[in-house]
């Protein structure tokens, strides 16, 4: 009985994984792109004050900057700027 139950559980798990793959795979790229677009906007908000765009929340954004540094290079290249847009903030 217990063996049967664990077997059923295993089959359910497998079916669930295959179903999730079938549900997600065709749209993985579209959703990842949409998320990246939102992330790009968020990056702009965080770094906007540095570019002279006034941002009332800049004080609160400050502490996020180090966390987002890893993404900074990808972001500025994606935005069409080969080098870091800031004089005081070198990247590459």
């Amino acid at each position: 009985m217990k063996k049967n139950l664990s077997r059923l559980k295993y089959i359910y798990k497998k079916a669930s994984a295959a179903g999730a793959e079938y549900y997600n795979a065709p749209y993985r790229a579209a959703i990842a792109r949409a998320q990246r677009d939102e992330d790009d906007l968020f990056m702009l908000l965080i770094f906007s004050e540095m570019m002279g765009i006034p941002n009332p929340a800049s004080w609160y954004c400050l502490e996020l900057q180090p966390l987002l540094l890893e993404r900074f290079h990808d972001w500025h290249t994606r935005m069409g700027m080969e080098r870091s847009p800031y004089d005081h903030f070198r990247c590459c």
Partner: peptide, 20 residues
């Protein structure tokens, strides 16, 4: 890259190729 390029099981891939 986990986004566009993902090696996929051939039965699952057939499933959405066929339904598309």
């Amino acid at each position: 890259d986990g986004i566009d390029f993902v090696p996929t099981n051939k039965f699952v891939l057939w499933g959405h190729h066929f339904t598309s």
